[in-house]
Amino acid sequence: MTESGLTPRTVEVLHSIVQSYIETGEPVASRTIAQRRKDHLSPATIRNIMADLADMGYLAQPHTSAGRVPTAKAFRHYALSVSQHRSGGADFARLREELIEHPGVEERTERTTHFLTELTRNVGIVAAIPAASQTLERVELVWLPDRRVLMVVVTGDGMIRNQLAQLKVPVSPAELESIRNYLNLEFSGWTMTAIRQELDRRLAEERAAYDTLLTRLSMLYKQGLLEMGMTPLVFLDGTSNLLGLDAHLTTERLRELFRALEEKQRLIEMLDQFLSGRTDELQVHVGLGEAHPALSQFSMIGIRLAATGGVETRLAVLGPMRMNYPRVVSTVSLVSHLLRSLPQ
């Protein structure tokens, strides 16, 4: 018996049912499974096995005279059994080359999303989540003509982020130097979260309105200083692949689904919810109705990668329950392995 209480033969029958249902979308009869097998089990024997599987919650019978259909429990069992082979090939060599050529977090995240969609023909989702423990090493502020300032933030993990600020009032190079010295002296070594909280407190004090340095600092702060690289990046690709799916969605439900997938915060919450397990471990979720009613007939296969360079990566493929699990599982596994192997 396996850990789930299934014998090897029962597992073979279960997986044959899942594969047949993925291919046809029709309830599966015992005779169909008997014809697929090489050991010549009789339809009667298979019917008994199917009855046991139904009792254990792996199969359902939509109509009395119809065959059986796999439940979410069955799909998950099948997906977890699929080999996570890492044979790679030309496609993965191409992705690796592209990611090495474009080391920026945003570019890597976006390209990985497109790649997941291209290979699986489902919806690819990749998020880069800044680690809450990131600390400030130093700030550099570069004066530019036309009231512009190049803001550079270096964090303790060695990451360098920059952003151009357009100010409404002029700031002199000397004032920028004072702001830079103030931030580096006061906050070097602090976490970015703690710095923002303390600055919010100091800038809210009445004296800040009369302090020239804090007034100038406030302008840069409102332009995104100390927020650079702290906002999660989320990319989604392949929603057009949802059109034409036999997922029993009304036109209105499909619109609701598209709207939900367009919301960045909703995507982050969904990844938090379904990729909450251990890092570097493939996770399979079948039936996502708790995230959105329109997702009840969908599956998500993904993985959460440990933070490197101050950023945690979460990647997933969203598709119908009747997705090609071997293709999706191997793609997610190989892409995650590839990302871990890239130079930082």
Rank of each mutant, 00 (worst) to 15 (best):
T135H: 09
T135V: 11
L136D: 06
R138S: 12
V139P: 03
L141S: 01
L141P: 01
V142G: 05
V142Q: 15
L144M: 11
P145I: 10
D146S: 08
D146Y: 07
R148C: 10
R148N: 13
V149Q: 05
V149S: 00
L150Y: 01
M151W: 12
V152H: 02
V152S: 04
V153N: 10
V154H: 12
T155N: 15
D157M: 07
G158D: 01
M159P: 06
M159A: 15
R161P: 01
R161Y: 14
R161V: 09
Q163F: 07
L164A: 05
Q166R: 13
Q166P: 01
L167A: 04
K168A: 10
K168P: 01
V169P: 00
V169C: 08
V169I: 12
P170D: 14
P170F: 02
V171Q: 06
S172G: 04
P173A: 04
P173V: 06
A174R: 14
E175V: 08
E175C: 05
L176R: 01
E177K: 02
S178L: 14
I179K: 15
I179W: 11
I179S: 04
R180K: 13
Y182F: 09
Y182S: 02
Y182V: 02
Y182R: 06
L183E: 09
N184Y: 04
E186H: 14
E186N: 14
F187I: 01
F187E: 06
S188G: 03
S188Q: 06
G189I: 13
W190V: 00
M192P: 01
T193K: 15
I195R: 08
R196S: 11
R196G: 10
Q197Y: 14
E198S: 06
D200L: 05
D200K: 03
R201E: 12
R201D: 11
L203G: 00
A204C: 07
E205F: 05
E205Y: 06
E205Q: 13
E206I: 05
E206G: 00
A208L: 04
A208V: 03
A209W: 07
Y210Q: 15
Y210C: 03
Y210W: 07
D211W: 04
D211M: 05
T215R: 15
T215I: 07
R216T: 05
L217T: 01
L217C: 00
L217W: 07
S218T: 06
M219D: 15
M219H: 13
M219I: 08
Y221L: 02
Y221D: 10
